Computed example of a mutant assay.
Amino acid sequence: MRSIAMVAGETSGDLLGETLLSALRPQLPNTLMHGIGGPRMAKYDFVSNWPMEKLAVNGLFEVLAHYREIKGIRNHLRDHLLAERPDVFVGIDAPEFNLDLEVALKKKGIKTVHFVSPSVWAWRSGRIRKIAEAVSRILVLFPFEEAIYQKAGIPVTCVGHPLAEAIPMRPDMNAARDSLGLDKEKPVVAIMPGSRMSELKYNSLPFIDAAKLLLKRDPDIQFIIPMAGDEQLAYFTRLATEAHLDKLPLKLVKGQSHTAITAADAVLVASGTATLEVALFKKPMVIAYRLMRATWEIARHIVKPPVGLPNILAGEMIVPELLQNAATGKALSEALWFQLTDQANRNRLHERFVAMHYSLLRNTAQASAQAVLDVMKENG
């Protein structure tokens, strides 16, 4: 029986996997597709041999705490795939997990595709040598990434970003506010401290402190806070209650992140894929991120600003980035106030984000599926 193995490590990878499978499954209806994935991939009869959440750990020391379990999963999967010999292995993001697995598989003659470039353009540029060892082909989301891999002699296909297709060029703010029960005449700020529990742990309180300070400037501001799931919603609610913040006008919702962004006049967002979503919705934003102190002490020597995708794609700092100790409630509130109230800045950002949106439009599902099929054909 023909088979394709895939590994997605978190929600954003599950979305990319869904996009790929939406075009790949119809062409391979009887092929076993399995590995590690989430509910979006499962819609296309993908069988997840382990829960995707096992890999969704962020931060150096947080990963170390789960290292033995994660390594055990990778070793077990590696041995199983070496025995199975799938037609192709597709690693969807999760480079710390997937690249080592891909190296082991490729050495034994199994074709490998890596979907999404690791941030070789932001940190650990030496990683590109490992990518060359690991992949038969890499699929990248952003046009500027193609040249990096072409120069390194690594087969590469730019497939665009699926969010550029999913997000409308002109989002309907009024409909989103109606859906969420928000006043159309009052300003709205979306607060997005992250989808991982580790992100919520470090980002939530300074983000809420920023909301408290903004309310002192304008008591009419409405805050919408989308949470990725039940666990995150319960954690944030408990945190707000313990900090006596539950009396603030903070409206929490499960999921609905795109609706929340659409409804907003400005967004306070944790660094990651969500920053690109905010840009594609053409919303002014402040990017912030905090880590465990020990993790940050290592990361600050490696990470090269900018880290936010809108700034990376723009080639300059068009929106503020406040990291670690700089991400205080006061600093975040000041930056958000500017994004809310400076109309000239809002107009400039809208123009930049529209251009960014057009630059990322491709048929990502078809392009990624065809690239995987092409690699499979190389097996003969």
Rank of each mutant, 00 (worst) to 15 (best):
E10F: 04
L16G: 09
T19K: 05
L20T: 06
L20I: 05
R25F: 07
Q27K: 15
Q27Y: 01
M33I: 15
G38T: 00
K43E: 14
D45S: 12
W50V: 09
E53G: 00
G59R: 07
A65T: 06
G72L: 10
N75L: 14
E84M: 13
V90S: 02
I92K: 01
D93R: 07
D93H: 10
L99F: 05
G109Q: 02
V113F: 05
A122K: 03
G126I: 01
R127N: 08
I131S: 04
A134H: 05
V135P: 01
L139N: 02
F142L: 09
V159F: 08
A166S: 12
A166I: 02
M169Y: 10
R170A: 15
A175K: 14
D178Q: 14
L180W: 10
L182H: 01
K184C: 10
K184R: 13
E185N: 13
V188I: 09
V189L: 05
M197F: 08
E199D: 11
L200I: 05
L200N: 13
N203K: 05
N203E: 06
S204C: 11
D209G: 14
A210S: 14
A211P: 03
K212E: 14
K216G: 04
P226C: 12
P226K: 08
D230P: 01
Q232P: 00
Q232S: 14
A234K: 13
L239N: 11
A240S: 12
H244C: 13
K251Y: 11
V253I: 15
K254V: 03
K254N: 13
G255E: 10
I261W: 06
A264K: 10
A264D: 06
D265L: 05
A266H: 08
V267E: 02
S271A: 13
S271T: 03
M285F: 02
M285K: 03
V286T: 09
I287M: 06
A288I: 02
Y289C: 04
R290C: 06
R293V: 14
W296K: 07
W296Y: 15
E297I: 15
V303L: 15
V307C: 10
G308H: 05
G308Y: 02
A314T: 07
A314K: 05
G315T: 08
P320T: 01
L323Q: 10
N325W: 14
N325A: 14
T328Y: 06
S333W: 04
S333Q: 06
Q339G: 07
L361K: 15
A367F: 07
A369G: 03
L373F: 08
G380E: 11
